Amino acid sequence: MYHLSFSSPQGYLDIAEDDGKIVSLIWLDGSDDLHRDETPLLLECKKQILEYFQGQRQNFDKLPLNPKGTSFQKNVWESLYHIPYGELKTYGDIAREVGSVARAVGGACGANPIPIIIPCHRIIAENKGLGGFSGGKGTSSKLELLALEGVKIFEENQPSLPGL
């Protein structure tokens, strides 16, 4: 397995490639060793992620993905992958698409090994609550990603969210 770590607006990220496919994207806490495997795929993935953060890219393309998970999780991630840039769906929306319940979809979102590219940050609760986010600084990272995409969201019990 090959890894490439790099600085992003949300801190250091690490992408992993196995057998010619992207298998994970994680936030590093700063104390982790940085990896510098510069394969063509990892370099292309890094380029596309940085373009996304710069507002120059709305879709990740030509990136072969192979997230490891159960068949249910993979079905959920496939649905997430097709949510357009700047749009939101609810956990319930995805549950109806895959024939399940919102709580199970939330679990699959939390287990998503390739966030940002598989955009679990575009999922919110039925009541317009933010829900969770397993990457970076949790929901604050989710809010940053949504703001980057121009999404305005109203979090329950808050009159408005800063910067949105």
Rank of each mutant, 00 (worst) to 15 (best):
N59T: 12
Y91H: 01
D93N: 09
S100Q: 10
K74G: 07
L43Q: 05
R96C: 07
S71G: 03
L88N: 02
D93M: 05
E87Y: 09
E44G: 06
L41M: 08
G92V: 02
N75L: 09
G86E: 05
L43T: 13
P67I: 00
G99H: 15
I49H: 10
K89C: 01
T70M: 13
F60L: 02
T70P: 14
Y81S: 01
Q54M: 15
Y52V: 14
Q56G: 13
H82V: 01
F60V: 09
G55F: 08
G99W: 13
L65V: 12
F60T: 06
Y52A: 13
K68W: 09
R57T: 14
K89E: 06
H82C: 05
C45G: 08
Q54N: 11
R57I: 11
N59S: 12
N59D: 11
S71M: 10
L50F: 09
V98D: 12
K68I: 15
E51G: 03
L50A: 08
L63P: 07
L41V: 10
K62D: 15
S79L: 00
S100L: 12
L43E: 13
P64F: 01
Q54L: 12
Y85A: 05
P64I: 00
Y85L: 03
Q48R: 07
G92C: 02
P64N: 04
F60C: 06
Q48P: 12
P67L: 14
I49N: 10
K74T: 11
T70G: 11
Y52I: 11
D61P: 00
E44P: 05
L88W: 02
E44K: 13
Q54I: 08
F72P: 00
K68G: 05
N59L: 10
L63G: 06
F72E: 08
G69D: 03
L80M: 05
L43K: 13
L43A: 03
V76Y: 07
D93C: 01
S71Q: 06
P40V: 02
S100W: 13
Q73S: 12
N59I: 02
E97G: 00
K62P: 00
Q58F: 07
L63A: 03
K62T: 15
F53A: 09
K68R: 15
Y85N: 05
L65D: 11
E87I: 00
V76N: 11
F72K: 02
S100F: 13
T90E: 07
E97Y: 10
Y81W: 04
L42R: 08
P64L: 00
S71W: 04
Q73D: 04
L41Y: 10
G69Y: 14
K46A: 08
L88I: 01
L42C: 06
S100C: 12
E78F: 04
G86L: 15
S71I: 12
A95V: 03
I83E: 04
G99S: 14
S79A: 03
L63I: 13
Q54C: 05
R96M: 09
F53V: 08
S100E: 12
W77T: 07
